[in-house]
């Protein structure tokens, strides 16, 4: 049901929850618990599957853990562990909030909201183009990877892997820029004059 909230409310709810998660001192255990409960409640309200959240957290924790563990390792006292817990708890809570926002707010809605918040048009035009062609480039990258894998008979050395991966990147860059040229041509053909125009979003979002 969170999906149907007005977009601004969703955005500000997420910002408020992240603010709460990052500002509450870890020493006040009950307060942290309340914030965690609110976030968990928001997740259940939006019917986000727990398994999905758990899977995302599984990929999220290792880098944060590596960063946080350096603190207690470098000092013996209790202080290091307190900081370790603070970083882990705050990171986890704000990550889950962001995950909630990602799931209840489709990207085009986010764009429309940002536009209502008066983010410059140039930025939004670039952002929407980027979002449009991101998936095209991913598919392109996938095809190039498949082609590379099809040409390889054995596992190459580390240096060869790096070299071919960087060449893949360069080739993708060339293709992307060529595509940008074609898109630019197509935009010109449709009367593009460097100004972005937007179709007004209806006041009520989809029922």
């Amino acid at each position: 049901m969170c999906h149907r909230w007005p977009p601004l409310a969703k955005l500000f709810a997420a910002i408020a929850m992240i603010l709460a998660a990052t500002c509450v001192p870890i020493a006040h255990g009950p307060l942290v618990g309340i914030v965690a409960c609110v976030i968990f409640f928001a997740h259940t309200l939006a019917r986000i599957p727990l398994a999905y959240v758990a899977r995302r957290l599984l990929f999220f924790w290792p880098p944060l853990f590596l960063m946080a563990i350096s603190l207690p390792l470098s000092q013996a006292g209790q202080k290091g562990w307190l900081m370790f817990m603070t970083i882990l708890v705050r990171g986890t809570l704000s990550f889950s909030t962001a995950l909630w926002l990602v799931n209840v707010m489709p990207f085009d809605q986010l764009l429309a909201t940002l536009r209502r918040l008066r983010v410059p048009d140039v930025l939004l035009a670039i952002l929407s183009l980027m979002y449009r062609f991101l998936f095209v480039l991913w598919d392109e990258l996938d095809r190039m990877r498949t082609a590379r894998a099809a040409r390889l008979f054995r596992k190459p050395s580390l240096w060869a892997t790096w070299r071919s991966a960087a060449h893949l990147l360069g080739r993708l860059l060339i293709r992307a820029l060529d595509r940008a040229d074609r898109i630019h041509g197509a935009m010109l053909a449709r009367g593009w004059d460097g100004r972005s125009r937007w179709i007004e979003q209806p006041r009520e979002d989809r029922p």
Binding site: I126, L127, L129, M130, T161, L169, L172, A176, L177, A180
Partner: peptide, 26 residues
Amino acid sequence: SVADRTIPLTGMMAALVFAGQMVNFP
């Protein structure tokens, strides 16, 4: 510096950096 080409070029560059970060370097 806006040429009318800047917006599609920058958008594509952003998409490229995003996609390029998916290329793994073991």
